[in-house]
């Protein structure tokens, strides 16, 4: 055996000698070499973890798939809700105020009223729908064409359809009141109730997605934790030997943390793929349905920043799940 070049920490020596030796060691420490050794050690753990996962490709894939499905559910629902919110927003922007003109107001006076309204700064557009035009539209779209033809007089008032610039509810209400007060106006109607209902439903959906996400995150931690627990059980003998020869808890923990992170990355990638495929598949029906309503609405794919957040979150979940599992089981793995 060569003479002792480097004693491990705490080797037996008298206190002054020990201090002297530490000073000498500190002066001659090769920090670059130590850093390389530290990185080598991490690389070895990383490669070892990857090799062990690759040794059981089907089992590893299934674990990632279960995690991926669990991740894709809240993310997918969230993306769908975003789509509906976008759609609701565009409808809200198209919110209009119907100004019903009194029956005794002549066509010429009504047109003048339309021009007055169109000149208001809060108004983007004002469209005139005369009494006859209104009746025609009602006959065309209500399915009551024949019945309406039997009416002796046209009961419908002329309408000025007002498109406001502002979509703020309070501003819209103020505009509606001003329009209702104009001479010749019978009633000004702002129907935002359905938009409010949609908003309430979306809010409920958001809460549901949040609750689902929290539940599934807990489930994911359990999945990773249980998988890592099995890894630990399989390597019990090895862990005991490592502890006997001076391995710290951090050293023992390291390969399992890498394994958890790999599970997370795998799950994140699978979830991304599932979401892209699922949204694309659903989009074909959504586009068809939107076309029936003269809309070009379509579901988008997974935005890149969302996808990257998904990957980072999945990696973190895998790592945290592994950390919790190892922390729980490490104490039970003292060498016997």
């Amino acid at each position: 055996m060569s003479s002792r070049q480097q004693l491990p920490r705490g080797a037996e020596e008298g206190a002054p000698e020990q201090r002297q030796r530490r000073l000498q060691e500190a002066e001659s420490t090769d920090w670059g070499g130590l850093l390389r050794a530290y990185l080598d050690s991490h690389r070895a753990s990383l490669v070892d973890s990857l090799r062990r996962l690759a040794r059981q490709p089907f089992g590893s894939f299934l674990t990632c798939l279960v995690m991926g499905i669990a991740l894709s559910l809240p993310m997918g629902l969230s993306l769908l809700l975003d789509g509906v919110e976008r759609l609701g927003g565009s409808w809200q922007r198209a919110a209009q105020i119907s100004v019903f003109v009194k029956l005794d107001v002549a066509e010429v006076e009504g047109q003048a009223l339309r021009e007055q309204i169109a000149g208001m700064p809060e108004v983007l557009n004002a469209e005139w729908i005369g009494r006859e035009q209104g009746l025609e539209q009602l006959q065309q779209y209500s399915g009551l064409g024949d019945a309406l033809k039997e009416l002796p007089d046209n009961p419908l008032p002329a309408v000025v359809l007002v498109t406001p610039r502002e979509i703020d509810k309070a501003a819209l209400e103020g505009l509606r009141e001003r329009l209702a007060g104009l001479p010749g106006v019978d009633l000004a109607q702002l129907d935002l109730q359905w938009v409010e209902r949609l908003g309430a439903i979306l809010k409920l959906g958001d809460r549901f997605v949040f609750g689902l996400a929290v539940t599934l995150v807990l489930a994911l931690l359990l999945v990773v934790g249980n998988t890592i627990r099995l890894h630990i059980e399989n390597r019990r003998a090895e862990i005991e030997v490592i502890k006997l020869v001076g391995g710290t808890d951090g050293y023992v923990r390291r390969p399992f943390l890498y394994a958890g992170a790999f599970y997370g990355i795998g799950a994140g990638l699978l979830a991304w793929g599932l979401l892209e495929y699922g949204l694309n598949w659903l989009n074909q029906s959504v586009v068809g349905l939107a076309a029936l309503y003269d809309s070009d609405f379509a579901l988008g794919g997974v935005p890149l920043d969302d996808a990257l957040s998904l990957l980072a979150g999945a990696l973190l979940l895998g790592w945290v799940g592994a950390w919790l599992a190892v922390a729980r089981h490490l104490r039970q793995l003292e060498p016997q």
Binding site: P8, R9, G10, E12, L244, V245, G246, T248, D249
Partner: peptide, 19 residues
């Protein structure tokens, strides 16, 4: 501190404890 103490010790077992 125990792992650092164990680094000063070498152990040989009857049943080897090899990996």
């Amino acid at each position: 501190e125990i792992p650092f103490l164990r680094r000063q010790i070498g152990v040989v077992f009857q049943n080897h404890h090899l990996l």
